[in-house]
């Protein structure tokens, strides 16, 4: 199966639900290199067309999802999306000129916090990454990282002081990742942050961050602004990684123990043949200047 054919089996986010215009305005975007148009019909039903072909749609996690497949794999579950006391915050999109897989891998990385999100999600000298666990959940075939801990000066908009934040990461499908982290204002629950990645093509993506938080004080605009700032900081990294695609050959980029999640993610992609946006062999490597 080709990398593209493999990628076609999944659902992809293509818009926030509340930004799909009223009939008859058509919104256009691109998925896996294919141009699509999104229309809210007169009866309110949303359709996605790729040329003459109609794609399936579903409305979930505050976004419109679509798939080029007639029988896509079922979309992953986020049980916390049903917890009505959370605030659900779709954050808009950040366009990034990198492989969708690089964007997901960066989301799973904590060691960069002190250097990229300085004085927000990390700060020197608190740079050490303590040992944590990574497994493949056999039932769901997901990458799961647990017991991840990191010192954070401002873990969320609602945080007033530095705290040791606990993280759990899930990668339920190649281009989506979810994290569960310490809620700064409550001990009994965890905040949920996800990125849903829309692959424009193998070297460009739109990242749709989404949050399900316990935060009664911050305004929606403040929470979105906080998350947008974090992702713009990430973009300055993602657009300067070479090669643009994610290398799956372990010889190409040298990991350490702090990269266990990334190592597991790369292996898991390779094993399931999720190669859209990936480089399989060193010979594909093209690190020349652009």
């Amino acid at each position: 199966m080709s990398a593209l054919d493999h990628a076609k089996q999944y659902w992809y986010p293509v818009s926030m639900l509340d930004s799909i215009p009223a009939f008859p305005i058509v919104k256009t975007t691109r998925v896996l290199g294919m141009d699509i148009s999104i229309t809210r019909q007169a009866d309110g039903k949303i359709t996605v067309m790729q040329g003459d072909e109609q794609w399936q749609v579903q409305e979930i996690y505050d976004h419109l999802w679509t798939s080029p497949s007639e029988a896509p794999k079922p979309i992953f579950d986020i049980p916390e999306a049903n917890e009505s006391d959370r605030r659900f915050v779709p954050c808009g999109l950040v366009r990034v000129r990198c492989s969708p897989l690089r964007a997901v891998e960066n989301f799973l990385d904590i060691a960069h916090f002190p250097f990229v999100h300085t004085d927000i999600l990390g700060s020197e000298p608190h740079t050490e990454v303590e040992p944590y666990s990574v497994d493949i959940d056999a039932d769901k075939d997901e990458v799961i990282a647990t017991k991840v801990k990191f010192f954070q000066p401002q873990a969320a908009k609602s945080a007033s002081d530095g705290i040791i934040t606990d993280y759990v990461y899930r990668v339920p499908s190649p281009m989506n990742a979810i994290l569960y982290k310490t809620c700064p204002t409550r001990d009994d629950v965890q905040d949920v942050i996800a990125i849903f990645v829309q692959p424009i093509d193998e070297e460009t993506c739109d990242v749709w961050p989404w949050m399900a938080l316990y935060d009664d004080d911050s305004t929606m605009a403040d929470m979105i602004e906080f998350q947008q700032l974090i992702f713009l900081q990430d973009r300055s990294i993602l657009e300067n990684q070479v090669p643009t695609k994610l290398p799956l050959d372990p010889k190409m980029e040298i990991p350490t123990r702090a990269d266990l999640t990334s190592i597991a993610y790369r292996r898991w992609l390779k094993r399931r043949g999720a190669l859209y946006g990936a480089l399989l062999n060193t010979s594909d490597n093209s690190v020349a200047a652009e």
Partner: peptide, 9 residues
Amino acid sequence: NRCPHRGMR
């Protein structure tokens, strides 16, 4: 212009 760890310029 490439860090051998994760390819960053």
